[in-house]
Every structure is written in structure tokens, then in C-alpha cells.
Write a protein that binds this DNA or RNA. Sequence first.
RNA 1: GCCACCCUAGCUCAACUGGUAGAGCGACGCUUUCGUAAAGCGUAGGUUGUGGGUUCAAUUCCCAUGGGUGGCUCCA
Length: 653
Amino acid sequence: MTTIRLRFPGFPQLRVSGVDSIEFEAGITPEEVLNQHLFDLPEAEVLAAKFNNKIIDLYVPLKESGDLDFVRPNTPEGLDVLRHSSAHLMAHAVLRVFKDVEFAIGPTIEEGFYYDFDLDHKFAPEDFALLEAEMKKIVEENIPIRRFEYSKAEAREMLKKQRAHFKLELLEELGENNVFSFYQQGDFTDWCRGPHVNRTGKLKAFKLLSVAGSYWRGDERREMLQRIYATAFPSQEEVDKFVYVREEAKKRDHRKLGKELALFSFQPEGPGFPFWHPAGVTLLKELQHYLDGILFQHDYQEVITPMVLNQVLWQKSGHWDHYRANMYFTKVDEEDFAVKPMNCPGACLIFRNETRSFRDLPLRLAEWGRVHRHEKKGVLSGLQRVRVFTQDDAHVYCMPEQIESEIGDMMRMLDEIYKKFEFSYSIALSTRPPNSIGSDEIWQHAEGALKRALENHKADYKINPGEGAFYGPKLEFHLKDCLGRSWQCGTIQVDMAMPERFDLAYVGSDNQPHRPVMLHRALLGSLERFTSILIENFGGAFPMWLAPEQVRVIPISSEKHLDYARVVYEKLREQCIRATLVTRSQSLNYEIRQGQVQKVSYLLVIGEREKTNNQVAVRSHEMGDLKAMSLDQFIAGAGAEIRSRSLHSGFKK
RNA sequence: GCCACCCUAGCUCAACUGGUAGAGCGACGCUUUCGUAAAGCGUAGGUUGUGGGUUCAAUUCCCAUGGGUGGCUCCA
């Protein structure tokens, strides 16, 4: 009899009692080990095993010595196994309910899992209850799940028998020497890498969320499949909580709040073109003032370039060949013009307009650049994807040796701004796309510069291969919206192609012309998209410096106290505090509620006491009733809160 | 652009299997003059997104079209 020795790093108490490893018969499965009750861990609470740090199924025989651990539900690995198996469970239910279905892929994702199906029946949300009921039934049947491994030829036969032509396509792309594993639970068998739980009874809590179309292999020329998004957790309580959090998040949706707070609107007359209402414009302007200060400190100068420029320019810049599908065109005096989708060509014309010396570099030209891009109608989404938006754009012309320090400076600005709002962000490096301009050498150089800047900044990042702009690679800074969707906001791009196309040059210390490098950069990205994230993060209750209505003055009696209320109101306006005055007659409770619901930063209640003592009774949106204080005291505190651009009230409760 | 779904008053939503539209909030008017989350009464708002069709009859069924939502592709 061959034996193996297993160590259990997940159970330090064993070692405390002097046991380093335990001997077992070779071929024992993790499940059998568990059932020897060496640890206080029931098999029912284990989803999979971990052998030498590789997650495996519980019923896989162990043939050699090594480290054995167990995957429990409330761990990232456990959740992943649970959800992956739940995807199979859902597919199994679809097979039972709808019979004639072909399976594509069913991976886990950040918040759950999905499975792509090809079938004639069109899924409707009404089907969800049906499918969930079938899933529950399969769970109650507690069907064993088993893994089978085949050669490629055998696997091919299996898939042919299943008429799984999508999976067959994937199979043919793999080498002969791979292991082709199938997982079977009752009448459902799926080609899958695994691992999975060992029986369906371990899948306790799940919920189908939405149905969506998706192209096979993400290719718009291929078949459109039906995708069901769903989620699963170890317990029903966690599913309920997940659903609750999603419902709460929907209340913060910027499209809903934008309407409620009269920030902006969309009209059928201009799909994808936002209309900014007065309150929304206040938000935009405050953001711009804030950014202008930072730009000044970092030695940027501001330019404005025209909205419409002729076709010759766009041909020169490469947009005509690489971006035409997204552009709007017009004719002026029989000549073809385009509405700018980017600000860079205009900036290049400004650079080229004078002879530039190496002493002028880096030349940092900022522009609040309003750009129009023709987006496909299906992608439009509130302020997050629009057809006209304002970039806090800048183009920095510098010498090659200045690239890294310039990018470093940009990353510091970005940090400063995102921290100001307490946003956390993720970074991606997007590399050369298939359809691009410039030589290999230039691209390597540009990508290298971005990588070095990231490393200097000690930033975590992922690489998006082939996702760069047509003229250069880019860093993308992503923020998340209230529903967990990630949006690219800030971006930093290295461009060595555009300066060449525009034949840009500066005079070096050697009195010779040299080619500058051009850096494109936006910190907020687009004001529209950034504002949508702001709205959702603050749930519409903006910090005072951003709030469209900062103070509302409410006289208790519109007959007896309106005069003094008006004095208060006018003093606030003198200090450039955005105050309004309530002149109608409504109950105080009503006005307080309105003020809270409309998320006004401060409500000042004016009654008899305030009038006689030259005071105001202050209610903060954030903290509630702050009691009375002198008008001067309030003005001083409010002014300081606004000037410091604080996220929170400066008053003490 | 593709797949699915949705569209009723300014907003949020009702109206059983087709019988021809109703509430709350808001707005407006009158009464009330109030001490920290909704005072009372009344009035005006809709060719049910638009256009066609089926039917004695369409908000309801069918077709087309516009806009939106969730995704996919694409992107700040």
C-alpha cells in the first residue's frame, strides 16, 4: 500500500498539538479526509479543496504528498466556486425548462455570474421565477456533480453529440495536450475547466437579475446570444442584502437625481445632447473654478480653439482616416468642415503659430474643450455617455527627456483632485490598437514612458492591449458609478505621431529644429461624466461649495418675519453665497421638509427670537438642527466652508 | 448599430381577460401665519410618445417609427 503525507497549513492548531503532517492511503479524496473528522469542519461547509495552492474538486483522488486545505464559502475563492457552480445550476434549469438550448459560456464576474444561451424562446423577466424555482428543485434533489477528463478527440465527440457548436469552436483552438474536463450533474453535462462543488445541495442562495443580448465572443459580426446575469451568495441574507444595496444605489442614479434636482435634462430633439439647467450649470462652473486654480498652480495657460475646422485639417491630423465615423460634418461656402471631436489639432495649430524655443518647453496649454462625437444611439447613457461634452483638456509640448516628469506632475494633479472628492480610482495602460498612425519605434518609446511613469508613481495598473488612441498609448483613470459600473474619466496620452504630422518643431540649444513630444491629458475627463459620478457619490447632497442652493432663508411667518428674513438674504447674497428666500406662506414643517428633500446645504429659520437678537436658526442638511447663532457667525462659518471647499459642514452640532 | 424590454398629467404610478382615463405629489387660487421632515379647501393639467392597421369599440392586439432602460460592440 502506497501512502502519502498531507500537511494542513489552514489548521495551525494541529501543529500546536505537535502534528506536522498526517499519513494517508494514496488516492484518498479531500472529501474522505474531511469525513475522518480530524478537524471541526463539517463537509457541508466546504465547497472545494486546495491542494498545493491549486483549487480542486473535493472528490479528486490525491496521489502525492502535499499541502491540503479546504475552500469555504465566505472567502473570495469560495464565492468564485459557488458562483461558477451556480452558473451551471442556472444552465441546468434552462435546459430542463426550455429543452432546445445551446450553451455558450458562463463565467463568474465581480458581482455574480452570467451564462450565454442560444435558444428560440426569448427570455423575459417573468421567466426568472420559473427558472429560480427549477434551480431550487435541482438543489433539493442534491445531485452529485462529477468531473470527467477526456482527450481532445473524445471531447470533440462529446460536444458534437451535444450539438454544442460554440464550444466546439473554442475546443478546436486548444492544443491536443490539454486536459478536457466535463462536469456532469444529472442530465446536464458541460465542458468546463472547473472546479465545482460536489453536489447541487451546496448552492443555497441565488437570484437572476437581468437578461441582455451579447455577441458570441464579443464580436459584433457574430451571433447574438441571450445572456442572463445573476448572482449567488453563501446565504439568502447576503442575497437579500445585495438586492437591497442595489435598490438603494438606484435611488442615487444621476439620471433620477438630475431630474429631481433640476440639474439637466434630455429632450427627444437632441438624443445624447444634454441640456444643462441653472442648478447644473452652477455645479459645472464651480468644478471649473476649482480646476482653474490647480491649472494656474501647475503653470498651465488656457487656450480656446474653434468648434468647426476644415476637412484638410482633419485629414492632416489623421482623424479623417481613423475617427470619421464619430464625427459631424458641415459645409461652409461649399467647403467641407467638421465639428471637432477632439481638441488636439487646434492646439497644434496654436503651437505652430510661433517659433518655439527649448526655453518655452514644457508648454502647457489647457482648454475647456467642448467636443462633439457621434456615438451609436445604443450606447448613450445619461451624462455618462453623451454626444457633446466638455473635456478639461490640455496639451503639453515638451522635449523627450521631459516626458516622465510631466507625466508625474499630471498624476499628482489627478491624485490631488480625486482625493479631494474621496474617490478611489483604478488605472489601466492601453497599448497600440490595430488601426493606428506612427512607427513601431515611436509606439514602443511612448508606451515605455507611460510604464516608467506608473512605476515611478508606484501605481497599481492593468494593461488593456490594443485599446490605445490611434495616435498614441494612454493611461486611463477609472471611477465607478453607483451601480458599480466603471467609467474612464482621467486620461494621459503620449503622442509622438501628431507632432510629426503637423511638422511641429522647437529650436534647441544647438540652434537646430527638434521635434517636440505632445502629451494629451484630461483629469476629470469629461465634465459631464465626472459630474454624473459626483452626483451619484454625494447622492445629490453636494458639499456646500458645489451645492446649487447653499442657503435657504425661511421666515416662520411671511407677515411678521419677512422683512428681517430679507435682510439676512441680502447679506448672504452680498457675500456671494447662493441663497434663496421663501416668500410664500407655508407651515414651517413643510418648508423644513422641502429644504431637506431638495438637499439645500443650510436652512435658516427666521422667527421672533432671531429677529430681536439679530440671529439665525441654522439647520444643516448634513447634521440637522444647529440652533441659533448670530448672522455674522453664520456668514463667517459658511464663507470659510465654501472657500476651503470642504466636503463637510464646518459647524459644530 | 445589435438583442430584449419599457413609454398613461410636470413627477411617481393606477385602469380584470379590448368597452373609450384615475390617484398622490407638484403647479395655481383662497383660507391659515405656524419654532425644525408634508396645514385645510378648491381649480387647472392627458388626441395614453408618434403614424398606420385589426375591431362595432384600442391605453390594452398587430405593424412601422421616435425616445428611454439593461446588456453587447464601441468609448471620455
